[in-house]
Each structure stands twice: as C-alpha cells, then as structure tokens.
Write a protein that binds this DNA or RNA. Structure first.
Lengths: 233, 233
DNA sequence: TTTTATTTTTACCAAATGGTCTATATCGGA
DNA sequence: TCCGATATAGACCATTTGGTAAAAATAAAA
C-alpha cells in the first residue's frame, strides 16, 4: 500500500509532469527524485552484496537493511517486498552482464576480438564478483525469475554472435569450432574465477585481486582459448 | 537426544560387537543396520535433489521429508538437524566429485589422459547434475562448511596433478601452460553444462541429456582444450 | 505370549522473518 | 511560521519452520 502510493506518485511525476508555475518546484522535485534513486541504489547495492553471499533465501531483510544502513521498515518503503527488491537487483545486474558480448563484429580480427572479450570478462569477474555470483546462483537454481525475461534478449544476442563466429570460421580465420560451445567456454572459464573464487583460493592461494595473478590468469586463458581456435593448416 | 541415542547404539554395535550367544542376533542387527543406511541414503538422495534446486536455505525440512516419503519428525530421527543432514550430503558429494582427478599420472599420454578427463567430467555433469549444482552453490557462497574439510585433500590432490602436468610440459609433451589454470579451465568448461544448464538450454535449446548434443559438446571441448595445449613447434 | 527396544506419528513450541499499521519526524513550499 | 506531503521509526502480527516431548505402533527378543 505504502509502496503503491510511492509508485503512483513517482509515476505521476514521470508521466505527467505538473505544469508548474514555478521552476523552483520542478527543480526540487527532480532533486527529490534523485535522492530517491540514490537511496534505492544504496539499498540495491547492499542487497546485491548480501544476496550474492548468502543467497536470497539465506538473507533476511534485516540484514540488507543493516548493510544499507536503513531500517527494515524504511527499506520496505522503497521496495514493496523482498521479491521486488530481488527482481530489481537482478534486472540491474543483467545490464552489466550482457554488455560485453555486444562488442564483437565480423569486421574485427577474431583473435583480437576474442582476446579482448576474455580480458573484459575477466576484468568483470574481478571488479564485479557479486554480480557474477548472484547471476550464477540464480542460473544454477533454474533462474525462475530471470529466465523469462533473460531468454529472449540473451537468445537474440547470442544468435547474433554465433553468426559472427560462424562467418569467421567460414573465412578461414578460425578453426572449425561450434560457436555455441566457444561462447559457453568463454563464459565458463572467465566467470569461474569469480564464482569459484573460494576454490581457486583454496587451491592456488591467490585471487584475481592480486594483480600478478590476474595478469597470469588472463595470459593463460587467452593462450589456451586462442591456440585452441586458431586456424591450423 | 533421540539421535544421540541412535548414535550411541550404532557406535556400540560397530565398535564392540556384543559377544552374542546366537548368530541370529547378529544377522538381525546387521540387517537392521542395512535398513538404517538404506533409509538414511534415501533421505540424503532426496535432500541432495531439493537442496541443489532451491539451495539449503530455500528448502524446508518438510520438502525434503515429502520428497523422501517420510515425515519430518522421522527425518529428524535419522539426522539430528538440518545442518547435519546437509553436511552429510556434502560429504558424500565430495567423494563423487574428487574421484576423476585421481586418474592421470605421468606415464600416460597427456593428450589422451586429458581427453579422457574431459569425457569423465562431462559425463558426471550429465549424470550427476544435482551434485554439480550443490557443489557450485556451496562454493559460490564461500563454502563455509565444505572448505575446512575440502581444502586439505583438494589442495593435496591438485598439487599432485600440477606436478604431473608440469612434468608433461617439461618433457615437451604439452605447450607451456600453467597447470593450475589448465585444471581450473577443465573444471569450468565441463561443469558449466550442468551448473548453467538453464542458460545453455535457453540459448541453444539443448541439454546434455540429448545424446547428440552430448557428443558434440564433448568433441568441441576436447578439440578446444587439446588444441590449446598441444605442443606447438 | 510377554516384554523390551526401536521406529513412526501426533501435538506442540519458540524463534525468525516478511510484512502491516500507526505514530512521529522532517522538509519543501506558501 | 505554518501546513501538507514525504520519509522514518516502533510496535506488532501471522506464518513458516527447525526442533522437541511424549505417545502410539511396530518389530525383535525372551
């Protein structure tokens, strides 16, 4: 109810800006909206962090609230329910997540393009581990919420890149790899360092936060994959 | 308490078999023990399944009980607590999980050995997806329970295999890859098909259950990795 | 058959938790 | 300074859920 109120208010200001007699009013309203977005953002950041660590079900709203430095009731003023909060977090995460794939196109040199893709994805694994983990958790559990709205755009963009890779293969610029499996492998090896960080650390004693280890990992993954797909006489 | 009772009883029968005047008694006792293990096994199977789907926190004991076709209280008769059940499931899982790595040794041909390892791991991903998912969930969340007892054996066995791979490299049988990253990559690409099954299916429309897709996946992964590490002049 | 040990069920409890309702504080505008 | 709207907090509630106590049922032993 409270949220319904909030929603309708915000929608109202967004959809039909009141023809204000004074500019001052509008400015203030906008500032307030920014404030709201700021606070919502802070809550979502906190939520992303704890959700990705303990899972959605393993996290209480109180935990999120504390982490975001607000009261639970106040949190529920900004998000109608735990699920709504979670969905918002997931949706925001998706944007970060699908962006890197956009990049490569037929004109590029495949070796360079893929090397760069590995670099970008590995950087993402280092700098956005929470996003990586939460995405992983959601997908592992069948992505009940994500899949419906992920399926279409993901399918489309992958389809697109599959065509690009296929073209590269046909032009003899790559060994004959199945584009799907190449993409899956790229995802797998790069995200592994974020998602399985605990294991990586247990085994090797290092994480991507160590610059040397990061560089070494990048080098190895690029070598492995690129040698794996370089056209062979 | 109830469990303590159960425990002590079982321990007693295991540690100091009562010098029975009759064989019949022992036989009966053994049969009962088998029954207990059977029931515990059934409960653990059910638990593995639901835990891996909804996460530990997302699963209630009632769900597990229903899946195992026992009452919740009855379940708690066989396992002292939810956590105890979970730990048992994890421990059992570990055995299945660490086995494949044991296999390769210096005498083998590295290309064959690694091809076989990929095959085994991919088969595991197909036939034991629940184990793969639960392991993934646990590790992603920092493996609070697993890590303590996983760390040592995992570290040891990996250390061992690292030495093997390093020897292969030194003998010129492999390109100069870092053994750690090779192992991580092998894990990543094979487990991906189980853990990210939802995504793989959303993108490609197929799963490892499809024999054709399985074969194709295996072929591609082997090609990719093996070409990636084959010694190049 | 009687007795004893073990397994299963029934009723119940206490804590945690998502969420609501109401009161209060705060802030922008007049 | 006053007022209306927005934001925050506090008390509270209903449900879920892990777990217990005790009784009932079943199986084993004597």
């Amino acid at each position: 109810m409270t949220v319904r109120k909030l929603r309708s208010k915000r929608d109202a200001t967004l959809d039909s800006p009141i023809k204000s007699r004074r500019v001052a009013t509008d400015v203030a309203k906008e500032r307030r909206l920014r404030q709201i977005e700021l606070k919502r953002g802070a809550i979502m950041d906190a939520a992303l962090d704890v959700f990705s660590r303990y899972g959605v079900h393993g996290t209480s709203l109180d935990q999120v609230a504390i982490q975001a430095d607000v009261s639970k009731t106040n949190l529920l003023y900004y998000f109608p329910s735990k699920e709504a909060l979670y969905v918002n977090v997931l949706r925001q995460l998706l944007e970060v997540w699908l962006k890197p794939l956009q990049s490569f196109s037929v004109e590029q040199d495949p070796i360079e393009a893929i090397a760069e893709y590995i670099r970008v994805k590995l950087t993402l694994s280092r700098d956005h581990p929470a996003e990586s983990r939460l995405f992983c958790l959601e997908i592992v559990q069948g992505a009940p919420l994500l899949l419906t709205e992920l399926q279409q755009p993901l399918h489309d963009i992958v389809q697109n890149k599959v065509a690009v890779i296929r073209a590269w293969v046909q032009e003899g610029k790559l060994a004959s790899v199945d584009p799907y499996h190449l993409i899956f492998s790229l995802w797998a090896v790069t995200q592994h360092y974020a998602d399985f960080r605990a294991q990586v650390e247990a085994v090797s004693g290092k994480t991507l936060d160590d610059p040397e280890f990061f560089a070494e990992t990048l080098q190895n993954l690029q070598d492995l994959i690129l040698n794996g797909i370089r056209p062979r006489s």
